[in-house]
Structure formats: structure tokens, C-alpha cells
């Protein structure tokens, strides 16, 4: 057996890396902020320090970079945790946060809101609600259908996803090509560029609920991943646990997609990297995935806003970085994914 590093150590290391990445991210960007200024600007919120920096610099740090950094971390953390949970709950290493249709449902809600000319807050709300409704539909169908629950849920997820995707395509077809269509397309590509405090506050609540509950029940997901019959004979209420886990993961996914658009790959790749680092036990895998997801998306977001003169939508970059990395994982010796 490949010895895994001690889980606690990896988690500690990831925490340090994340803290360092957050600090560095404040300084990256068109408007340069020095490390010293950053330190005192942040400190000035706690104690009084006579400003030796410009007001613009303070505005950049607090109004632009801070919300964006926090949002990147929260979205990365949420998508990665959701992916890890879906993989365990559906006993399927290929599961990702869009398995039950949360992302495509949210995309449909956003596209519809853009078509109707809604405000940006309404677009976010519409995406969130539509993502939740899609998954609830999938769960209802899966509970009613006879036979294997896991298979039914996955099939129902594929069906609902395809219906909502078709809906999104139809909206794109009828949308005004001058302004609505580009808005929808850009939204679908996924981006954190519009990060504002209001969106941060909107997404943070459902994310906190989902993350806390999933963190608490993480050990049980191990048992769920053995399969329904075994888990039930060990006294685990499989159906209830799966619905709770799926709903929490959906809160995370829908909230993420509603504020950042479709950002693929984070939810699939990060949990797998973390599996390599700490093993499959969710007691360590869950916190590692949460921290790893936040770190991964924060780094990618920094690249997306600083690589070219125009910002590259982050969804494109996660695929460009995530997919080759995944291929590397598969090809590596002993590469059982």
C-alpha cells in the first residue's frame, strides 16, 4: 500500500498554503499593492494606524480584492466538498457536483433571468432556486422509482440535466443576440469577475449550512460508499443519509453556480488529488477537499485575472488545468483513480 501522509499533517499544510495564497492574492493584479501596505491596511481595521497609503489602495483591497478572494475560496471549497460527497454517496469516483443536475438547473435559472432582463441579484437568486428545484425533482423521481436507488438517482439526474440544458439552449436561441446572448454565454463560462459583497453575503449562508452539516456527517459517508445493503445492516439509515448529503451538496453547488457561473472540474479533480494525499477516509478527505478546493480555485482565479490583459473566464482555465492534471493522475504508476 502506498503510505498516505498523515491526514492531520496534510490538512495543516493545506491551511498554511491557503493562508499564504490569500495573502499573495491581495498583492496580485493591475493595481499593485505592496506586502507592507497590505499588512498595515488590514491591521488598520483592528487598531488605528495613520494611513500612509492612498484611499484607492484601501478601496482596492477591501472592495475589490477581498470579496473576490473570499468568493474564490468559498466557491472552490463548496464545489470540491460537493464533489467529494457525491463520489462517496453514489459510490462512483467519476461523480462531480453536477451529477444530480444542480449546475445545469442553476444555469437554466440564470439564463431565464437574463432573458427576462432581471437585475443581477435576481439572476443570482433565480439560478440558486432553479438549481435546488432541479435536484429536488431528481430526488423525488429517484425515491418513487422501484429498483436500485443509486442508479435511479443518477439516471434521473441525467434526464433533468438534459431537460434543463435543452431549456438553456432554447433560451440562447431566442435571446437577443446583441446583448442577452453574450451575457448568457459569458455567465455560463464561469467567472468571479463580478464578485461583490452582496453576492458574497448571498452565497455564504447556504454554503455555511451545507459545509457544516457535511463536515459533521463525514464519517458516515465512508459507510455509504460501501453500498446500500452493507450500510443498512450496519444500522445506517441509508435513504435519509443520502438525501441529507445530496441536499447539502446541492446547497453548495447551487450557491456556487449562482454567484460564479459554471466552473467545472474543481469538484472532480480536487477531491481526487486529496484522495491521493490523505486517502479515502472522509474524516480527513472532507477537510482536505474543502481546503484544497479553496486553494485550487484561488490560484486559478489569480491566473485568470492576471495572465492576459483581458480576464479569462475561470471555467475555461479550470478545464485547461484540471483535465491535463487528471490525465496525469490516471497515467501515473499505480494510477487507480
Amino acid at each position: 500500500m502506498k503510505k498516505h501522509l498523515s491526514g492531520a499533517r496534510v490538512i495543516l499544510l493545506l491551511s498554511f498554503l491557503l493562508a499564504a495564497a490569500i495573502a499573495v492574492s491581495f498583492c496580485i493584479g493591475r493595481f499593485s499593492v505592496g506586502a507592507k501596505q497590505l499588512f498595515y491596511i488590514l491591521l488598520s481595521r483592528i487598531t488605528y494606524i495613520k494611513p500612509f497609503w492612498s484611499d484607492t489602495m484601501e478601496a482596492v483591497v477591501f472592495n475589490i480584492r477581498l470579496p473576490r478572494i473570499l468568493l474564490a475560496c468559498l466557491v472552490g471549497c463548496s464545489l470540491s466538498a460537493a464533489g467529494a460527497v457525491y463520489q462517496g454517496v453514489f459510490q462512483n469516483p467519476m461523480a462531480s457536483p453536477d451529477l444530480l443536475g444542480a449546475s445545469s438547473g442553476a444555469a437554466f435559472g440564470a439564463a431565464l433571468a437574463i432573458l427576462l432582463g432581471a437585475s443581477s441579484a435576481m439572476i443570482t437568486a433565480s439560478a440558486f432556486i432553479s438549481g435546488i428545484v432541479s435536484v429536488v425533482l431528481v430526488l423525488l423521481i429517484g425515491q418513487r422509482a422501484p429498483g436500485k436507488k443509486v442508479v435511479n438517482l443518477i439516471l434521473a439526474g441525467i434526464m433533468i440535466s438534459s431537460i434543463t440544458s435543452a431549456g438553456t439552449s432554447f433560451i440562447k436561441l431566442v435571446a437577443d443576440p446583441a446583448n442577452q446572448l453574450p451575457a448568457i454565454t459569458y455567465w455560463l463560462m464561469g467567472s468571479l469577475s463580478g464578485a461583490k459583497r452582496s453576492e458574497l453575503f448571498f452565497a455564504a449562508k447556504p454554503m455555511a449550512i451545507g459545509l457544516i452539516i457535511l463536515f459533521a456527517i463525514r464519517w458516515r459517508i465512508n459507510i455509504l460508499s460501501l453500498g446500500d445493503d452493507e450500510a443498512r445492516t450496519m444500522g445506517v439509515n441509508v435513504n435519509l443519509l443520502r438525501v441529507i448529503a445530496a441536499l447539502c451538496a446541492t446547497l453548495l453547488t447551487a450557491a456556487s453556480v449562482s454567484v460564479s457561473g459554471m466552473i467545472g472540474w474543481v469538484g472532480l479533480v480536487t477531491p481526487h488529488i486529496c484522495r491521493r494525499l490523505v486517502g479515502n477516509d472522509y474524516r480527513h478527505l472532507m477537510p482536505a477537499s474543502m481546503l484544497g478546493g479553496a486553494l485550487f480555485l484561488l490560484i486559478v482565479d489569480n491566473i485568470s485575472r492576471s495572465l492576459l490583459s483581458t480576464e479569462i473566464p475561470i471555467g475555461i482555465l479550470t478545464a485547461f488545468i484540471g483535465a491535463p492534471f487528471f490525465i496525469y493522475l490516471i497515467l501515473r504508476k499505480g494510477g487507480r483513480v
Binding site: Q91, N222, S225, M234, G235
Partner: peptide, 22 residues
């Protein structure tokens, strides 16, 4: 289920779980 799990235990046929545990 929980009470029953205190009375009977199941030893299934060998199969490979989707994820590997120690």
C-alpha cells in the same frame, strides 16, 4: 435498522468497494 444492527451482522460476498480503505 440501528437496533437490528446490534443483533445481527452481515458478512457480504467479497466485492471491491468503489473506494479503498485501510
Amino acid at each position: 435498522l440501528r437496533t437490528l444492527a446490534k443483533k445481527t451482522a452481515y458478512i457480504p460476498q467479497l466485492h471491491y468497494p468503489a473506494f479503498n480503505y485501510s
